[in-house]
Design a protein around this nucleic acid. Structure first.
Lengths: 211, 211
DNA sequence: GTCTATATGCTGATAGAC
DNA sequence: GTCTATCAGCATATAGAC
């Protein structure tokens, strides 16, 4: 029992430390890149000695992979689900709303992913790459079904999905630029609603699903 | 005369070397980030000894700035111009066509810029930042004029400009991901036309400028 | 489990031969 | 102008005290 308690405590410390390290590492990898982020800078940000980082994650490459994996899992969970019963209008609304919410809630996850892809996705394993292709193809089939049924205009479904990806993720990845354009210091909670509305409105109309 | 000839030759070598270095540096900075790209790796890619890079650009930071400046100039030239006489339909068509062409012709310029912005634009001087804000405000005024005149639907002009930025740049920055989704090795020349068509079509309709 | 001290290798930059 | 040789500093990673 005493042992259980002790183990519980240790696991707790372990879990908390790991989380602190992952968060700090994500920030540093985004701000400085893989090579530019030093184990020391990650340790400083996490408030832990450098050796602890290497004790928990063995080496820097391993830590990077752990951060990337966490990021992809978050992306996967946050993307929402579309089913054939939705019909095109609801599907597009759900899809845009989920992605915009993700972008504003976890911009770091989006940035981390973006940097990796821009650099040619050198660390994204074949699995993650082909998983995305599968996902897009499945959802594209749904849209194609609605097109064939005459429920929406004849629009290339893959291009439509890419449009929704790009226009929503941009608010996370290019946050610095958008804030500059708007001359603001940071996003406000109501921006989520405004952006969702704008994109839903214009894309639905673009698909002939709204006057 | 002999001296002129000699100087001409040297300037030529100088110009060619500088261009080779800038190109090599751009690739390395994109692939490895600022810290990850070593002067040696840039030299290897340019086919020159390491010391020459530092002879031409004094230090790595200087070289990075030179690459970034070249990138921004290219962005500025390639963005095209919109005037009030165009009216909303022509303006949007011109704008999308120019940005898509840029993205497919100079994807590296877009990637370089994207990485800089994602990292919080630490090297983009105040000038470049505020310049963009000015540019967007000017063009937004034109769109607002057309909205007020009833020439197009009541759409937020700044959000529209951001949508066009995001949806066009995405094809450059996320090239690796789009090719994965499409299961292709590289873009084909006809992709420029197809993407321009798709985006123009859906955005014009989204703005109520097309049935 | 936690942290200090240290080994080993690679980096940007320079000095100086050609 | 071009290139080789070298230096000083900092990085990751490990060994081992606590």
């Amino acid at each position: 029992m005493a042992e259980n308690k002790k183990q519980g405590k240790q696991s707790n410390i372990r879990a908390k430390s790991q989380e602190k390290i992952l968060d700090a590492a994500q920030q540093e990898f985004i701000l400085q890149g893989f090579k530019g982020a030093t184990v020391q800078s990650i340790a400083d940000r996490a408030g832990l000695p450098k050796a602890n980082i290497l004790y928990y994650f063995k080496n820097k490459e391993n830590l990077y992979h752990a951060v990337l994996e966490q990021t992809l899992n978050m992306w996967d969970e946050g993307i929402g689900d579309i089913v054939i019963e939705d019909g095109p209008k609801i599907a597009i609304e759900k899809f845009i709303a989920a992605k915009v919410k993700m972008s504003f809630t976890y911009p770091s996850a989006s940035k981390m992913h973006a940097m990796e892809v821009i650099q040619g996705a050198p660390h994204l394993k074949e699995f993650a790459r082909t998983y995305l292709r599968q996902w897009v193809r499945e959802k594209a089939k749904l849209f194609q079904h609605w097109v064939d049924n005459g429920e929406m205009k004849d629009i290339d479904p893959v291009s439509l999905i890419i449009l929704i990806f790009s226009s929503t993720q941009h608010y996370a990845d290019f946050e610095a630029q958008i804030l500059t354009i708007m001359n603001r210091a940071e996003y406000e909670p109501e921006d989520i609603e405004q952006v969702t509305q704008f994109l839903t409105d214009i894309i639905l109309r673009g698909c002939g699903l709204k006057k």
